Amino acid sequence: MTQNALILIDIQRGFEAPVWGARNNPHAEERAGDLLAYWRAQDRPVVHIRHVSVEPGSPLSGAGTDFKPEVTPLPSDVIFEKSVNSGFIGTGLQAHLEEIGATELTICGLTTPHCVSTTTRMAANLGFTVNLVEDACAAFASNADTSFDDGPALTAEEIHRTALAHLHGEFARVVQSDVLLQA
């Protein structure tokens, strides 16, 4: 039987800071909470990833590392901390997943074009089958640095959809939460 682990990436209070700019998908945390409740009810493995920034003044340091209430870990949940984009770099995530026999991962979190994308890509490259939950992820417009050209700034939704389009098919199967919860 395939062991499917839920990986919740960086769903933290620090992403409430205004510095990030406009955001898409305001219900991403609720959808992640729905997935978490389902995984717990099915007694499936859950892993939380927390970004602890080493950048002075980062919103993802101090109280900004607190998990949002929709996905508060239980004492039995596994938590890995990182300071780079990938949940696999400098953590025991891969060893833990191999130890529990996980071959399939369901990934959600913040932000789509950064830590979610990087972790998804690495998971696929390490041989895991990945489901990436579109409506349980979100992006920010401030991530769209187009200073390299004269083109228009991208919206948070454009960034989100573009990141997902780059992952779907090659690195993951992009799905909606309700599809997973009904399966």
Rank of each mutant, 00 (worst) to 15 (best):
F15A: 00
D145I: 06
N24E: 03
V46Y: 00
N4R: 15
M1T: 12
F128C: 09
A5T: 12
D43M: 06
L74Y: 11
A172R: 01
V71K: 01
P75W: 04
A163R: 08
G64K: 00
L126F: 14
V175T: 13
H168C: 05
Q42F: 08
S61A: 14
E55V: 13
I49S: 03
V71F: 02
I49E: 02
L8N: 07
V71Y: 01
E134N: 13
S83Y: 02
P69G: 03
H48F: 12
C137E: 02
A17T: 00
P152W: 07
I79H: 07
H114E: 04
A95P: 10
K68V: 14
N25S: 11
A183N: 10
H51E: 05
V179E: 15
R44G: 10
R121H: 02
A144I: 09
L35P: 05
G109I: 03
E99A: 15
Q42H: 11
A163P: 11
L105W: 01
A153G: 11
E16V: 07
A138L: 15
E157P: 09
Q42T: 08
T65G: 05
I100N: 07
F88D: 02
N24M: 09
D10I: 03
G101V: 07
D135H: 11
P73Q: 00
V19P: 04
N4D: 15
I9M: 06
H166W: 12
D43K: 13
A123H: 00
